[in-house]
């Protein structure tokens, strides 16, 4: 399922946040959304998820505009993974994942045996089935992020939108979560995630989209988009792009900060 953003403009009052945003994402691709604070990343997500209605333009899935879709219809197609936050109430991991099934249930229904099976499969897929009966505040930050991903899998939507999934994770968990997302894309999902780390986009992204001052600044492969010039213009810092050969003999690129390069 393709997701297209066609000429979206959005303003909070007189403050123009997004201006004529236009792009299409395709299944099987992990796309990183880069951009400095305040560049409109969250607003773009809100528009794509239908939480904000843009003043101009539309979002469409396989050419079908999302404006007429009910929350449940939209949830069948797009899953959203928020940044992890400490939950107020201590739901078990299984209960949290089952919440992803809600769009598939009737209004007055509770999770069926089938829903529970699908939730377990999602946990299994991410290797955290053993956590099913644990409380959400008894598990680590990395595990909490995996639970939210499992919930999105249980939702069975083709498109997954993720808001800075690595922001509160330690280094190991950051890479673990990103490689899980990468492997979901290899299974045919479309993942669009925002990040503040160009190196993550370089290492894991199939595509990179840079949002700057409310416009799409660049959109292309990591090698095309993540350059010294782009980083300098957008983040006002100097970096070097290094090349190295990994253990498999493949040439890879790396974003390296230059000290005192500001």
């Amino acid at each position: 399922m393709n997701i297209s953003v066609n000429g979206i403009s959005f303003a909070y009052g007189t403050h123009q946040v997004l201006e004529n945003i236009d792009f299409t994402l395709t299944p099987g691709h992990l796309t990183f959304l880069l951009g400095p604070n305040g560049s409109g990343k969250s607003t773009l997500f809100k528009c794509m998820l239908g939480h904000r209605r843009p003043q101009a333009g539309a979002v469409s899935l396989d050419g079908m505009p999302t404006t007429g879709m009910s929350p449940a219809e939209l949830a069948h197609r797009i899953a959203y993974i928020p940044q992890i936050s400490t939950p107020t109430f201590n739901y078990t991991v299984l209960q949290a994942v089952l919440m992803g099934r809600t769009a598939h249930m009737k209004l007055f229904s509770t999770p069926s045996a089938q829903d529970i099976r699908i939730a377990y499969e999602a946990l299994e897929r991410l290797g955290i089935r053993h956590l099913a009966d644990k409380g959400s505040n008894q598990i680590s930050g990395g595990e909490q992020q995996l639970v939210l991903i499992a919930r999105a899998l249980a939702q069975q939507a083709q498109v997954i939108i993720m808001d800075e999934p690595t922001s509160s994770l330690d280094y190991g968990n950051q890479l673990m979560v990103l490689s899980q997302m990468k492997s979901l894309c290899q299974d045919g999902k479309l993942v669009f995630l925002s990040s503040h780390n160009p190196q993550h986009a370089m290492a894991y992204g199939d595509d990179v989209l840079v949002l700057y001052r409310g416009k799409v600044w660049r959109h292309g492969t990591p090698q095309e988009v993540i350059t010294r010039e782009m980083i300098h213009q957008v983040y006002h810092v100097d970096v070097a792009i290094l090349q190295y050969t990994d253990d498999a003999g493949q040439v890879r690129h790396m974003v390296a900060p230059i000290q005192g390069g500001r």
Partner: peptide, 23 residues
């Protein structure tokens, strides 16, 4: 009692709850 399952989703963040498909 009838909407007891959906009440669980209201304990989540607003955007999160909406994107799980509830009004």
């Amino acid at each position: 009692y009838l909407i007891r399952w959906r009440l669980n989703l209201l304990t989540l963040g607003e955007d999160e709850a909406k994107s799980l498909g509830i009004n």
